[in-house]
């Protein structure tokens, strides 16, 4: 296996060829924030939080902003993960996420265990500099066990990917476009009416916020379980069950 050496925040890191910048940074214990990324699912580079400044790749010296989750490390790359420019982008992105939905932590099932909430703390968002939009969004409680509150959805599409790539049911997809985008079940039917749903709950396990939840959960009771997905993917990939 060939190896390449790159420099992340003035630190030399050697990784196998084909490693993404996100993996390389995490191996070196350099944290890069992510929301749409989840180990075990394909990367879509949609949340833009993992943008890093990259120079020295392809002979280009001028730093370019690239999503660490989909960029492969190459020999001689120089990566900066926390410049003021990146920190400004991350804070603005989190503000944009908060202002486009209706995120009321105090009454949320995921309060205290929410990746979006944690991200706001991590990027130092103590308030939003942009105005809240208070969109009119629905809640789908048609499923027997689970609920979907569109007010809390950040369109990371983890549910879409886990259902398609791991469960193979493809219950979820994205409907409409732009600001009108929303997660849809089936062909835009109520979730409970979609026969393809296997009721496995993987979408609920991977949802970073309180958008997908167990109906039995009340305030602060929802915990995400991405490790269940990762154990399953590991078992399938390596034909070995070690939860």
């Amino acid at each position: 296996m060939s190896v390449c050496t790159l420099r992340i925040n003035e630190r030399d890191v050697a990784v196998p060829t084909g490693t993404t910048l996100l993996e390389a940074a995490r191996q070196a214990s350099i944290p890069i924030p992510t929301l749409c990324f989840l180990e075990g699912l394909s990367a879509v580079a949609a949340c833009r939080l993992c943008l890093v400044e990259v120079s020295g790749a392809d002979g280009r010296e001028e730093p370019r902003l690239l999503a660490a989750c989909v960029t492969t490390a190459t020999e001689g790359m120089r990566v900066q993960t926390h410049t003021p420019r990146l920190q400004e982008i991350r804070r603005t992105v989190v503000e944009l996420l908060f202002t486009e939905g209706n995120h009321v932590c105090a009454i949320c099932v995921a309060n205290g265990h929410c990746e979006l909430q944690n991200m706001a703390v991590e990027v130092g968002m103590d308030h939003s500099r942009l105005p809240y939009r208070f969109p009119d969004r629905r809640v789908d409680l048609s499923h027997a066990q689970f609920g979907l509150d569109h007010n809390r959805c950040i369109l990371c599409t983890r549910c879409v990917r886990v259902c398609d790539e791991v469960e193979g049911a493809h219950v979820w997809d994205v409907g409409w476009r732009g600001e009108h985008c929303q997660i849809i079940s089936g062909l835009g039917e109520p979730w409970g009416a979609v026969e393809a749903c296997t009721h496995c709950g993987k979408c609920v396990d991977v949802c970073p916020t309180g958008a997908l939840f167990h109906k039995a959960d009340t305030n602060e009771e929802k915990h995400g379980h991405p490790e269940r997905l990762q154990a399953l993917v590991h078992a399938r990939t390596h034909q070995e069950w070690s939860p």
Binding site: C47, L96, L130, E179
Partner: peptide, 21 residues
């Protein structure tokens, strides 16, 4: 651009709305 944004990434989906506002 706001109308035509596909909505995949947040800066374009929500940023164009805030810019227009």
């Amino acid at each position: 651009s706001r109308e035509e944004s596909c909505g995949k990434c947040i800066p374009c989906r929500s940023g164009t709305v805030q810019l227009e506002m």
